[in-house]
Write a protein that binds this DNA or RNA. Structure first.
Lengths: 172, 172
DNA sequence: CTGCGTGCAAAGCATTTGCACCTAT
DNA sequence: ATAGGTGCAAATGCTTTGCACGCAG
């Protein structure tokens, strides 16, 4: 139990991941990247895990398969995959970068519980539209966006009830 | 020219800052904080600067007044002010923490230009409403939120036109 | 006077990088 | 063979902290 520990994620998701696999192969090919044992294991774990993994969580599961893999390799691999648009890099402000697969389900935003660390996803097309309107009005070309709600999830609220006075403490 | 450099901010803003001053005094009083020369200068600079300053930018302007102030003091002071809810801490993911005054104007979100670094603000009550709806639906108690659009601002788009191929490079 | 606040330098910590070795291709 | 990958340890860069001194109350 150490860095970036948090609760398990929300439910399963539709694996339209075949397309992702194909894109991955295509990307590695295009860039002339080699298929090494380490990369294979990392990618396998990434596909296996539900979501929003930190480098440490990922490394842990990778080492369960091959204990010889180092931090640097995971960092380098994730950076590559992010460049290739195969994973999304998420920074929720607690100091750990998290990664999630860029499958079709990818277009969503996040609810982050400051008490238990659980990350839930949401999607709201109406917000996207308003957002596009704002960008348009500013002549701004959106390449990426981030919409996150930080607070207390249903379970935590229920369990500890009001619990006043700790507003920023739990974060980080 | 060094860390966290970026373009000047968008226009002036209504200084309802009198209330903020009052809150500040109240906060320092409540916590038994001392009014030192350093804190006074830091706060003065903070009130004077338009927006979204990094620690370095702030320290620079502080040192223009009193060259003897150290990094640590600025960090510590900003942390205090953030705890007191007098400033907001913003992390746009480029590695620098930025601060902005928590005046009445504070309820807004950000457009961040990845090319020139300019930060523009926007406000969209309709989004807030949808957001509240989402939280409600999830039984989630929102304490804070973050809504940011990353991309190319109008000026940069005009000036360099399409310029394809550099999508993640400019950031940081 | 007393203890909070400060400056400096050192420590922390996630992430990146240099380098010698390794291994896909 | 040979250039790209890897592991390790050292380096980065922002932020925090320990400690001795200084100054507000």
């Amino acid at each position: 139990m150490k860095r970036g520990e948090h609760q398990p994620q929300t439910g399963p998701r539709p694996p339209d991941r075949e397309r992702l696999r194909a894109e991955l192969v295509q990307f590695m090919d295009r860039r002339g990247l080699r298929s090494t044992e380490q990369r294979r294991v990392i990618i396998e774990q990434l596909f296996g895990v539900t979501d929003h993994v930190t480098i440490d969580q990922l490394l842990e599961s990778v080492r369960a398969v091959d204990p010889r893999v180092g931090y640097a390799t995971v960092y380098r691999t994730m950076k590559l995959l992010a460049e290739g648009g195969l994973v999304h890099e998420r920074k929720f402000g607690d100091g750990f970068t998290r990664y999630e697969l860029a499958d079709a389900h990818a277009h969503h935003d996040h609810l982050i519980c400051l008490d238990c660390g659980k990350i839930t996803e949401f999607e709201e097309p109406a917000i996207e539209e308003l957002q596009d309107g704002i960008a348009l009005r500013h002549g701004f070309l959106v390449r990426d966006h981030k919409h996150e709600l930080y607070g207390t999830c249903a379970e935590c609220a229920k369990q500890s009830d009001v619990k006043p006075g700790r507003v920023k403490t739990a974060h980080r």
